[in-house]
């Protein structure tokens, strides 16, 4: 589904991603872990198409399409979804209006008619129930005055509505209390199928207790330096990253 080869990206002439290789297949759950500043959010932004970053080498292919040729909105239409580490507050744009526009823009791109209001409402109700979100939420401005947890829940609500093929969850667990974490993880699991894939970026094992990864990658200083199964995450939880850093230290 997503194939990344030797991806290098920089911002303001500072190289942040230094040759990333990653392969995500339908039905898989990948976890990317790594210390702060190692480039995890940069990787997700680059996949989603943020233009501030300059891709200097490598390639990204999503379902047969070269991502470098797609704008962020086209990547969304193709089925990529990014749950932001820091969701943006947009005063004056209500959650409903935003979702409605997003869904219909995607449908339009696929040559479909706008979704009938009734169906839209029904879908919203269902997904709100799934994520235990209050109705009053819909009329509020996106993320404005939302608590950290509410912002993250709102991201997953959008994901549930947009039904992406590939969801990248960038530290969706931070800011969530234990109950909210369970609800969000449960939501993600319910939406999971053999046809879609999830990339979970996290620092902590606790999210992975709920969403079991098939693969765990360690991102360090702009490179994936180690990959393994779910046991790697447990090992990291126990030992931190220092042992990997040492493994990476130049020899001699």
């Amino acid at each position: 589904m997503l194939t990344i080869k030797n991806l290098r990206a920089s911002i303001e002439d500072k190289e942040i991603l230094k040759g990333i290789n990653l392969e995500v297949k339908p039905g898989e759950v990948h976890a990317i872990m790594g210390p702060n500043g190692s480039g995890k959010s940069t990787l997700s932004s680059v996949i989603a198409g943020r233009e501030d970053y300059e891709v200097t080498a490598g390639e990204m292919n999503f379902l047969g399409q070269d991502l470098s040729e797609l704008d962020p909105e086209e990547r969304a239409h193709a089925g990529i979804f990014l749950s932001f580490q820091y969701p943006v507050e947009i005063p004056g744009v209500s959650v409903t209006n935003f979702l409605k526009t997003a869904i219909n823009e995607s449908r339009k791109a696929k040559g479909l008619e706008p979704m009938p209001a009734k169906d839209m409402l029904k879908a919203m109700k269902e997904k709100m129930a799934l994520l235990e979100i209050d109705r009053s939420f819909l009329s509020r401005s996106i993320n404005e005055g939302f608590s950290g947890g509410e912002k993250k829940r709102n991201e997953i609500f959008q994901m549930a509505m947009l039904e992406p093929k590939l969801a990248i969850l960038d530290e969706t667990d931070s800011g969530l209390d234990i109950d909210a974490l369970r609800i969000v993880a449960n939501g993600v699991n319910k939406l999971k199928s053999q046809d879609n894939a999830v990339v979970v970026i996290t620092h902590y094992q606790r999210l992975l207790d709920h969403i079991t990864p098939d693969f765990v990658h360690v991102l360090l200083n702009g490179q994936i330096v180690k990959s393994g199964d779910k046991n790697l995450a447990l090992e990291l939880e126990e030992k931190g990253y220092d042992w990997i850093k040492k493994e990476q230290a130049p020899i001699g």
Binding site: A76, H77, I90, V93, T101, A102
Partner: peptide, 21 residues
């Protein structure tokens, strides 16, 4: 970028923000 990453095209995203403004 937030709006575009949700599939809203450039012109529409711009319009939404300006309208909200």
């Amino acid at each position: 970028f937030y709006l575009k990453s949700r599939g809203i095209r450039d012109k529409e995203a711009r319009a939404m923000l300006l309208y909200a403004f």
